[in-house]
Amino acid sequence: MNIFRLAGDMTHLISVLVLLLKIYATKSCSGISLKTQELYAMVFLARYLDLFSDFISLYNTVMKLVFIGSSLAIVWCMRYHRVVRRSYDRELDTFRYWILVGACFTLALVLHEKFSFQEVFWAFSIYLEAVAILPQLVLLQRSGNVDNLTGQYVFFLGAYRAFYILNWIYRYLTEPRFTRWISCVSGLVQTALYADFFYYYFISWKNNAKLQLPA
C-alpha cells in the first residue's frame, strides 16, 4: 500500500458517501444515472470474485464489501425506494449500456492477464469501469443544472482513478516486476473521459458559479 493508492481508495469512498448523503438527505436521485450505478455494481461484482478465496488484508476485504454493498444499495434505492424512485430522470437516462457491457466482455475475452474465469472477469471489470461514467456524463449534459452533491460525487469518482495512476507509476518505479498494463491503460482512458467535466467543474469553482455542462 502506498499513499497514492490510499488517497485513491479514500477519494473513492468519499464519492460513495457523498452519493449516499445526497440520496439520503434529499430523498432524491435527480441528476444521478441509474445506468452508471448498475454498471458500477457489475464492475464490483465482476472484480471482487476473489472476495472469499483470496484474503489480502482486512482493509481490502472491508473496502470490497463496502463498495459492493453501497453500489447494490444505491441501485435498489433508485429502483424500488418509493420516495427516491419518483425523482429518477427515467426519460433522460437512456444510455444503451448493454453495448458497452458486450464490448468490454468481448475485449476481456481477447485481452487479459491469464485466461481463467476470475482473470477474464477481472479484466472485464477494469474495462467496464473505464466507460461506466458515460451514462452519468450524458445525463449531466442533458439535465443542464447539476446540484452540488451530484457534481462533487462525479468529481471524487473521477479523481480517485487519477490517484491510482500515480500509484501505478510509483509501483512501477519501486517494484521490479510490477506491470499492470490493463489497469494503467484503462485508468488513463477512464480519467481522460472526465477531462471536460473537470474543466467545467474547475471553471464553476473558480467563478463560484453553478456547474453548467454545455448541452
Binding site: 481508495d9 463498495f67 492477464e113 477481472w122 500509484n167 509501483r171 516486476r177 510490477f178
Partner: peptide, 10 residues
C-alpha cells in the same frame, strides 16, 4: 502468489 501479481488493489 507473491505480492506483485496478486490482485491486491481495489
Amino acid at each position: 502468489k507473491d505480492d506483485s501479481d496478486a490482485k491486491d488493489e481495489l
